[in-house]
Design a protein around this nucleic acid. Sequence first.
DNA 1: AAGCCCCGCAACCGCACGTAG
DNA 2: GCTACGTGCGGTTGCGGGGCT
Length: 343
Amino acid sequence: MGRTPCCEKNGLKKGPWTPEEDQKLVDYIHKHGYGNWRTLPKNAGLQRCGKSCRLRWTNYLRPDIKRGRFSFEEEETIIHLHSILGNKWSAIASRLPGRTDNEIKNYWNTHIRKRLLRMGIDPVTHNPRLDLLDLSSLYGSISHMQHPLHHLNPELLKLAASLFSQNSLVNNDNLSSQQNHFITDDVSLPYPQPQFLESNNNVVDSSSYPSNLHHDELMSSSSSGDYYLQANNNVGIASTSSPYYYVSDQLPPSYYYHYHNNYYSPDANLVDPPMSETSTFHSNNSSNLVSVSTPSSSPKPLNSYVNGNNSSTEDERESYVSSNNNTVLRFEIPHMLDVNAFV
DNA sequence: AAGCCCCGCAACCGCACGTAG
DNA sequence: GCTACGTGCGGTTGCGGGGCT
């Protein structure tokens, strides 16, 4: 232990770099290259610590640094890589030429993360935040009925199925496009088909939606390509990479999809979510325990994002994303979430 | 116009970890 | 094994700009 600090605290400048300091650092590195950051500032005539010089060089002065706002492709890559690598900013930066880890980290924290939260997506797990919806009354309504699904309004069933299928995967060629169902003990109902929409809202593809959603088959489903599919209707599914949902055997099988090449675009404006970070709810029948839990990942109150003012740049970004000719998966959530209106 | 507030971003801090001598 | 050093990361700070009142 007892490692000495990288610099003496006394006499060394902190704070923003002046153009003169930048020039000194650049000149020195052009002449001698960079190497020993501890001795570099002294040799370069800078009243800075080596760490500060290194950060200034790697994050700002390096000649190959790309300036300006992130392109849609870069942003897509960041989200993609973050879903795989997590907060490995340097690893992400290595895949984005000209971008630094610090820049990506800042951009993530100030733009992408907030937008994902507004979209109802957990920025850590990249899964929809089901905790934003209070489903207790919905499931309570289902579970206390003797033949629950027979008596429900189709709109309510559609909503329930929609909520369960929010984690749908996309573009899996190995899955056929048969009618999708969720299975209960006594009734089989079609899953609502998520729609692929172009920017003009034309439906362009729905054939790649996962099929064979019978839970017995899902139990044995395997990963395919980039997509990871797991399903289980037992209580207590454990996963190291995603939130998990577990339900009783009288409710739709739980499942989630870990996806890599696409991301969700639920219309978060359709709901006014509760501000709880995690919600757990129980049906009236204790044997039908239903728990939907999304790990907390937001140090800031969610309403600071959901209800907060959007900056103009953020609005621009939103319009940029929506106007880009990229296909996104869009989930339609009914406006009316009052269960009593359906039963 | 002035003051306040919010936000984005550059920069810093502290710590952990890998590596070479 | 110890130490120095470089590097990476999460968290945080503080400045400056812009918007609002």
